[in-house]
């Protein structure tokens, strides 16, 4: 089974409309610097919730939670528990 961060990269590839290949991103690369917009973040949030069958709590719905593969992976791991 693929790791959380691999699945995060796959969701990014499909939903984040980045200017680079999500598969080639380092864990801590700034996603906003490679084209993640506010509205794409919304699509990304909904896609992550579907992929991992989770509901991200309101307090995590902020810019920092989606800033990198590592940050997103951390959010998913925290919510999945």
């Amino acid at each position: 089974m693929s790791s959380t961060s691999d699945r995060v990269r796959s969701v990014l590839k499909q939903h984040a409309k980045l200017s680079v290949d999500a598969g080639a991103l380092a864990d801590h690369d700034d996603l906003y610097a490679v084209g993640l917009s506010s509205f794409s973040t919304v699509q990304l949030m909904l896609a992550l919730e579907e992929e991992f069958n989770i509901e991200i709590p309101d307090k995590m719905l902020n810019r920092r939670s989606f800033e990198s593969v590592a940050a997103i992976t951390n959010v998913v791991d925290t919510v999945v528990g």
Binding site: S38, V42, L46, L61, N62, R63, R64
Partner: peptide, 14 residues
Amino acid sequence: GRAGKLLSNNQRDQ
């Protein structure tokens, strides 16, 4: 909605 929560937080952060 919930997507709005995220947009609001983004707007404030920036």
